[in-house]
Design a protein around this nucleic acid. Structure first.
Lengths: 169, 169
DNA sequence: GTCCATGCAAACCTTTTGCACTATA
DNA sequence: TATAGTGCAAAAGGTTTGCATGGAC
């Protein structure tokens, strides 16, 4: 198996995925390791197309079905998180960073994604857990808007709603 | 035009949508009014199939394409919000409640959705706007977990991750 | 040797689009 | 009467699945 892209030393992370597969009694295949390596090699939020393209750029040709199936395993293992930023397809991000839990800032102009930590959200979780007798397992906080470069480039937030919006009737 | 479902007096809301259409120079059609009426007649988060079904139950047969096109207008008018709770399709909720801005609690067992207000999120928005020079336009906070009835019924959170999860490597 | 994964293509599902026809203003 | 909407069916686009072949253990 050849390294597809080695910005970081992905070997320990890939090994962790191997451990998960072994625990589940599933074979460790070249394809699975290669897909995992691509996902672990970047901190970006990759789409399936981007993963496929990265593999191809590294000389590896892996079927989309296998990529989807491997991503499913990576998500089940909890080593990878699935995101949907409303683009019509999913994105995947590994959780082996120093900041495994974080929220997202998404620029609606350029599609850029930034990450931030928020201890406040955990407090909100606790509060609603109490008030609604709800047991939270995970949450998702996404703030959409314009990033500074886009705003400086003159991007505007289009307003198409009613000319005199009503908040309550 | 016949009332499809009148749990609440939806007429003023539908009229608001009419005003939006007029402002945009678009015709007010029976189909548009009927779809709007269904969406405004409930506080639930409706899927396109549910809207179609409700219309059919009321004796109205409106093509799915028209429903999708009307929902697009309702969302543009800001009278309706689009949600994606990860079910593989979208849901729609009108914003003409006493609580137009709110967050969601989603039970992963029964699919139930509860709403709660959080002023904390606005503070988080302000904070990251400052820290990241980001101009927020909207946000989405969703907390997934188990609601009390499901938990009492014995529902468990399946854990399939690595037996010894690592937070950081 | 057994079981499972892979790759391809077909199927799937939601959503969008093209087009002939119809309704709105 | 001009302009835009409707409904149907087909297309689109991401994701999943069936099946014959090939690989892991």
């Amino acid at each position: 198996m050849r390294a597809v892209r080695t910005q970081q030393n992905t070997a320990p992370f890939v090994r962790l995925f191997g451990r998960y597969l072994r625990e589940q009694g599933l074979p460790i295949t070249q394809q699975r390791e290669l897909v995992a390596e691509v996902v672990f090699s970047t901190d970006r939020h990759l789409s399936v197309d981007e993963i496929e393209e990265t593999l191809r750029a590294g000389g590896e040709r892996i079927g989309k079905a296998t990529i989807y199936r491997t991503l499913d395993l990576l998500v089940r293992s909890q080593l990878v998180e699935e995101h949907d930023f409303g683009e019509g397809f999913k994105r995947y991000e590994h959780r082996l960073s120093p900041q495994p839990v974080h929220e997202h800032l998404i620029c609606t102009e350029c599609g850029g994604v930034w990450e931030f930590r928020s201890t406040e959200v955990e407090k909100i979780e606790e509060r609603v857990a109490r008030e609604y007798a709800f047991r939270p397992t995970r949450h998702k906080l996404e703030i959409y808007g314009l990033c500074e470069p886009c705003r400086e480039a003159g991007a505007e937030i289009p307003y198409e709603g009613l000319t005199c919006p009503i908040e309550t009737v």
